[in-house]
């Protein structure tokens, strides 16, 4: 049962790494916002699978909260990206 889950976890780990890379490299702030959202989703997925893999279902709640919270984060970043004073941005 667990072999497939482990593979899935490895794949998710890789995609999370890619999302991290996106955030770090992303030329514009918008890229980084998207990267963060993506990283959030990946983290969500990992937590979900891991909770079933390890039997602790509490992580599912954490995933639930993460889904809601990362939305707030992204909206905040995007919202302030436009308005507010010109946030100094090393636009690529």
């Amino acid at each position: 049962m667990s072999v497939l889950l482990d593979v899935a976890l490895a794949v998710l780990g890789l995609s999370l790494a890619l999302a991290f890379a996106r955030v770090v490299l992303g030329p514009t702030a918008a890229d980084r916002a998207m990267g963060l959202e993506l990283a959030g989703v990946n983290l969500l997925a990992i937590m979900g699978t891991w909770s079933l893999r390890s039997g602790h279902t509490e992580f599912m709640d954490a995933a639930l909260v993460l889904a809601a919270i990362s939305f707030v984060g992204t909206v905040a970043i995007a919202n302030y990206l436009g308005k507010g004073r010109p946030v100094d941005d090393d636009r690529g």
């Binding site: 514009t28 702030a29 918008a30 916002a33 998207m34 959202e37 989703v41 969500l44 639930l64 889904a67 809601a68 939305f71 992204t74 909206v75 970043i77 995007a78 919202n79 990206l81 436009g82 941005d89 636009r91």
Partner: peptide, 21 residues
């Protein structure tokens, strides 16, 4: 939750990107 929130966040990010040129 994801279905509810992610389209909006993509929209907002795109809009912000466009607004900041």
């Amino acid at each position: 939750i994801i279905f509810l929130t992610s389209p909006v966040s993509s929209h907002v990010v795109a809009q912000a990107a466009y607004r900041t040129g």
